[in-house]
């Protein structure tokens, strides 16, 4: 293993430690808080996600035009996103954790996350890999014009034209959630 490969692993680990620290401090290492969001009684999850989106978008708007950040988005299709997203959601509501927060729940000491949850996710990814070719041939998995497409690509000179109005909209949503007392 080369030195730079080791450095990358170390970077991944450090970024992971900070991410896990923040997830736990946000309370989203806990089933009750995540399920509170899905039962629409506690909006912690949405508050964290929307704030993180606004901040990340501002950073990309600064560094993308300077060539310091690449905007490489996921391949696939709207169809994959809807079908896969709903399957994910079904599991999300039953398990009460998602892949990032289950790792945080394990660190927080939750045995259901460490046993059934982790086991299930690993089985799920293996099943997907085993059926991947068939799903592709049967056209369950597709590629459409939105594959790897990002709105940033058409606004490279001045991304703020795009991201400021979107941020304003997201802030409005946060404001409404907050004023509804959720």
């Amino acid at each position: 293993m080369s030195k730079s490969e080791n450095n990358r692993l170390l970077e991944g680990l450090i970024i992971g430690v900070l991410f896990g620290f923040l997830l736990q401090k946000g309370g989203v290492s806990k089933y009750d808080i995540i399920m509170g969001q899905l039962r629409l009684t506690d909006f912690t999850v949405i508050k964290i996600i929307l704030t993180a989106i606004i901040v990340t978008m501002m950073g990309i708007s600064i560094f993308y035009p300077r060539g310091m950040i690449e905007v490489k988005t996921k391949s696939g299709s709207i169809k994959n996103a809807v079908i896969g997203g709903l399957l994910f959601g079904l599991g999300f509501g039953i398990l009460g954790y998602c892949p990032g927060t289950i790792a945080a729940a394990i660190g927080n000491g939750y045995l259901d996350a460490l046993t059934g949850g982790l086991f299930g996710i690993l089985i799920g990814t293996i099943l997907f890999a085993l059926f991947y070719s068939d799903l592709k041939h049967l056209k369950f998995l597709t590629i459409d014009k939105y594959s790897e497409y990002s709105l940033f690509h058409s606004a490279r000179e001045n991304p703020f034209k795009l991201t400021l109005p979107i941020s304003a909209f997201l802030i409005l949503i946060l404001y409404l959630i907050q004023s509804a007392g959720l």
Binding site: N80, A81, G84, F88, G91, G117, T125
Partner: peptide, 14 residues
């Protein structure tokens, strides 16, 4: 069961 759906769905959606 939840984990299995989550794992399949995450890979399906990318």
């Amino acid at each position: 069961i939840g984990g299995i759906f989550l794992g399949i769905g995450a890979r399906w959606a990318g």
